[in-house]
Design a protein around this nucleic acid. Sequence first.
DNA 1: GGAAATTTTGACCAGTTGGAAAAATGTTAG
DNA 2: CTAACATTTTTCCAACTGGTCAAAATTTCC
Lengths: 245, 245
Amino acid sequence: MSGKKLKAVEHPPVTARRQHKADAKAAATHPPPRQRPLTRIQKEKQDIILEAALEVFSVHGFRGSTIDQIAEVAGMSKPNLLYYFPRKEEIHRRLIAALLDTWLAPLRDFDQNGDPFTEIRSYIRRKLEMARDFPRESRLFANEMLQGAPRISEMIEIDLKALVDEKAKILLTWMEQGRLARTDPYHLIFSIWATTQHYADFDVQVRAVLGKGRNGEGRFEDAARYLEQLFMHGLSPKPRMNGSA
Amino acid sequence: MSGKKLKAVEHPPVTARRQHKADAKAAATHPPPRQRPLTRIQKEKQDIILEAALEVFSVHGFRGSTIDQIAEVAGMSKPNLLYYFPRKEEIHRRLIAALLDTWLAPLRDFDQNGDPFTEIRSYIRRKLEMARDFPRESRLFANEMLQGAPRISEMIEIDLKALVDEKAKILLTWMEQGRLARTDPYHLIFSIWATTQHYADFDVQVRAVLGKGRNGEGRFEDAARYLEQLFMHGLSPKPRMNGSA
DNA sequence: GGAAATTTTGACCAGTTGGAAAAATGTTAG
DNA sequence: CTAACATTTTTCCAACTGGTCAAAATTTCC
């Protein structure tokens, strides 16, 4: 039953093709993107706006957020905000760009020459700290992923993939050397991402389930302890003899 | 620097207080929610709408989705859709309600009398299957969480918490019996949720990173194998003597 | 201090969005 | 067949949204 065809959702769904009459002139009434090296005041205001935008975008996603909301959180009028960032997308783009850089830093630091378990442990720890200290960034990222990463598909298909490939190779080497349990390095990385970011992205759920008791900093301490145990034991190379060919 | 106060985002952010002139009459022109036992045709149409709404809401979240989008996906006009669900929120509420029920079923089945490892393994497997077979539901849920679960806070603070408390107790018992590694049962459950749902919520990322190679069904097979290894080894009760007090 | 440049504001616009009303078109039981 | 009911379409609206623009307020630099 229900023979009606259900069309799939597309991405630039309703808005976006409304190009208005902007950009043709670009920088007539908007001096910020000028040749000048960007005043200190401009930098400050932009930071305030980006802060506010992070607050809003991370909760409602791109489409669900409005310039008015961001302007209100930033404590300025909408036209004023638009003076610094002529379009909504630009704000989002800036946030995402800055995010990706910081977000992957811990993985970049993953060191070939280190001890496998030390490296993995400190990676988990750093990711968990990021979830604790930058939950909004984590949610912004999650929001983007949930939506199919329309604005950063290139970034993840190329840069991210390359980085993960590189690190997966390191893990593989360690496994071959018997210093790490033989397993799928990609899924290993996924599981670290998932478990750590969970504490930022599903924060409400975690809080609700843990109740009012263990919820302050302790929450993250416990998580760190648990994850460490899980991964250290789960990945230790068993001296069993059933792996090699 | 930047002494401007940054207001926090509230939830019924901009819209929502626009109550129009609805609800006062309720069911003057909208017969569906009548006393009649709901025709088969009505049921069908509602299902089509809910299907379409799931498609849209799961990607763009509540605020980011529009009735027009849903109507288009459902293959009907907006007023026609509104004939079946007088308001947007109602559609969402219905989806969420149905979701929560199915979503927690695997955890409910967690059996006190089973073998710890069998239970955990099959729980992981079922959750992973759900991520594979119902990714939209997973994303709908994730979207709701990211937004701070404004529409289901009660549900998770009461029902979900109670359920998890109950299962955590079971895990604790097993740990005390030495049948499972002594660890934090709550974070154990979180980590299973996180790792399995990751494959639905961050699907684009997973696909991008894995590349075109291992991506069909194999993706989930590999994930299952990896997670099984991780959790089975990570949670096995080491015969080491360093845990007790 | 004052002209030039920068920043902010207020009024305004066109397109979108959630929803209302009512007319028009089926459907169905008698 | 037709009255009563169910469904769909057309038209319309007010609030919201992203964005413009010119004038006003402020800051900067000589």
